[in-house]
Design a protein around this nucleic acid. Structure first.
Length: 257
DNA sequence: ATGGCAGCGAAGCGCTGA
């Protein structure tokens, strides 16, 4: 099986790219973030025509997440949001696919470490941690993938000094990321690639993509049962080169049956 | 090595993102 995550920065704008990418890369599950569209605006017909099923949790203008599941795989036990956390921002979605519990997340950005949004980010991560603890306990085969808005390590940052203690790189954020790993999860990309300069996001400005100046903030975390099945995990930079791209690239994991 | 972009909703700019 193949699973992927992609922050599309507006599904309305990026639907053609998503459909093209799926045609070329027919993953079994694609987690999408930043749909930026209301629950009743989801382009289900186009996605079904491409051979996918979907569950989504949208809101107007901001946030919004979805799981696209390649037929005939079925979407089992979908859950929208983090149960028990009354978060007005729609950032989390889960379902079971072919025996694997899949959780897609658009984690809080935080704006800056001085911002109230940064406080919300750390609180939100604590809620995600507690939710994941329950999910991992229930589902030995569990994957959490999405836009984490955290660069876990200095290797994941194009300019370490400029970003030191800045949002996405601060010590408390990295501790929150490590807290997820402490639940028994592994950053799948780093199982296969220890290099620096491996980014998943590049700012639209200043030709940052062309110069490969970015951050690795989109991740796939897997439990040991899935880690043992993983044969590859890569960042697909190709769609970042297309016309009118998302500023994020998809991350793809391949699992043996 | 960010000013510079992009999307949205609204309105001809401000907010947000990362």
């Amino acid at each position: 099986m193949k699973f992927a995550t992609w922050n599309v920065n507006s599904l309305k704008v990026r639907l053609p790219q998503v459909l093209q990418w799926l045609a070329e890369t027919p993953v079994d599950v694609l987690a999408l973030q930043e749909l930026k569209l209301d629950q009743d605006k989801f382009p289900l017909a186009e996605i079904e025509a491409a051979g996918y099923r979907a569950v989504w949790y949208g809101q107007k203008t901001y946030n919004g997440v979805a799981l696209l599941v390649r037929a005939p795989f079925e979407i089992e036990d979908p859950v929208l949001g983090i149960p028990g956390y009354d978060d007005p921002q729609r950032r989390v979605i889960a379902a079971t696919v072919n025996g694997v519990r899949v959780i897609g997340a658009y984690c809080v950005n935080g704006e800056s470490i001085e911002s109230d949004k940064y406080v919300y980010k750390l609180e939100w991560y604590a809620r995600l941690h507690d939710y994941l603890a329950l999910e991992v306990e229930k589902h030995p085969a569990c994957v959490l993938m999405g836009d984490f808005n955290i660069a876990p390590d200095d290797r994941d940052v194009y300019d370490v000094e400029a970003w030191r203690d800045k949002v996405l790189c601060s010590v408390p954020e990295r501790a929150a990321f490590e807290g997820l790993l402490a639940l028994g999860l592994t950053d799948a990309f780093r199982v296969f690639n220890q290099e620096d300069k491996q980014y998943s996001w590049w700012d639209y400005r200043a030709a940052m993509f062309r110069r490969n100046l970015g951050l690795r903030i989109d991740h796939i975390l897997v439990t040991d049962a899935l880690k043992a099945r993983a044969t590859e995990c890569v960042i697909d930079k190709a769609p970042r080169k297309w016309e009118r791209p998302s500023d994020h690239a998809p991350v793809v994991i391949t699992l043996a049956d």
